[in-house]
Design a protein around this nucleic acid. Structure first.
Lengths: 229, 229
DNA sequence: CCAAAAGTGTTGACCGTACACCCATGA
DNA sequence: TCATGGGTGTACGGTCAACACTTTTGG
């Protein structure tokens, strides 16, 4: 619309999403079989081109919703990939986002409607372009983020038990944790609300459910609060 | 060149650089008076449009070199800004980079040739578009990075004294540090090489010069080494 | 000889880690 | 009653922060 910049080249901009999920056992990534050329039928991250009427963040949300049907999801910009030949068909700049979703909700709504599939991190197939690089970076970011921001909760159902939470962190960090120390640490952050309800089915005794108390966390934040797991 | 993507819109892509420097006292940012319309004459980060024959990283280097004449500079991609109206003239997606330079070298080579100026962080003027947001984010990133990557050295001359290094970290973190504890910590990381030479002029006694031993650091890295200041 | 900055060790508090047993309940 | 996972407390060692005096040398 403006005359000022018109001597400069323009580029396609894609938004690609690395979508993490947790199935109570393992950390997983959601991949799709690409449904358009080039590389149609190959495994790929979910992505789309930036449109004129949306910001990058909005494009990320749109791409995510179109695949999962979910809104209000944790979504964070990761990195922008701009190598000249990263896409062998044409030059495309890709802004990668990473998302955390609660697989319980997802499975209910979308189960098999899409040609998407969850992959364990060790079993990721060959992907197009630089998508494997993106996943590597996303995983590192997730590991770091999870140590001082309460994003683990994004991967769990609304109500969760402390043993579940521990399993999640063990999966993210790829280590085993001592349950007494873990419980102490996580409770000392003081953002969990204990419910008067127990999980049934998993153990005979039953573990108490907790929820993440976002209000409390936000109040902490405004007080310059910082935690480290 | 490809037929596959041609129904999608394309965009201008800019690369903007947040350039930090340290003058032995304060942390500073290098800004320029914009020399083209729109907003010609206003203060701005140094930037440029992405060209067809370069990757994003290369564009960052080019922009940086065109302003400072320096190559081989610490340069890290920061974040990509894609709000629809961030530039009021036309839609531009901006990939921000942050750079660390050694002001001694810079001052020698370019002093006043360019219409660039160093600003203390507290005295940054009104900038165009979202450039102030970018600086805020860059500063946060620098603070975090400096705690577990040896990037402080990028802001100092080849040879530096421990008191100089301490002043630098005090500027970045905006705190005072105990010199005994600082010296112990920084030396325990084991990447400084003591030289047989003392600084003259600053104190009567004179402080020993050190250099950053990159080889040693790289060897540590491959051993899965990690430090925290 | 004095001013100014460089350089050096020790102690106490706190935090992270390791570790083992009892509890509740469904089958 | 027994098998399964849930829940709890303590003690030790290491790390971090606080702290004050001596050294060197130019003026």
């Amino acid at each position: 619309v403006s005359k000022y910049y018109k001597n400069n080249p323009t580029y396609y901009i894609a938004v690609d999403c690395i979508i993490f999920g947790f199935d109570q056992e393992k950390l997983k990534v959601l991949l799709i079989k690409r449904d358009f050329e080039p590389h149609k039928g190959e495994w790929s991250l979910m992505g789309g081109f930036l449109k004129n009427n949306e910001s990058l963040d909005e494009a990320g949300k749109r791409v995510l919703e179109s695949l999962t049907g979910l809104t209000d999801i944790y979504l964070e910009q990761l990195y922008t990939y701009g190598e000249i030949n990263r896409d062998d068909a044409d030059r495309v700049i890709s802004v990668a986002y990473f998302a955390l979703i609660n697989t319980t909700v997802f499975n209910e709504k979308y189960s098999n409607k899409q040609k998407a599939k969850w992959f364990e991190l060790e079993k990721i197939p060959k992907l197009i372009f630089d998508h494997e690089t993106m996943i590597d970076k996303a995983l590192k970011r997730l590991t770091r983020r999870s140590k001082n921001q309460p994003i683990g909760f994004e991967l769990l159902p609304e109500k969760f038990t402390i043993p579940q939470l521990q399993k999640l962190y063990e999966a993210i960090w790829n280590t085993m944790l001592d349950k007494r120390n873990f419980r102490r640490k996580i409770l000392s952050i003081n953002v969990l609300k204990k419910l008067d309800e127990k999980e049934i089915g998993v153990s005979k005794k039953g573990a108490y459910f907790y929820t993440f108390d976002k209000d409390k966390y936000d109040r902490h934040l405004t007080n310059g609060y910082y935690f480290e797991l």
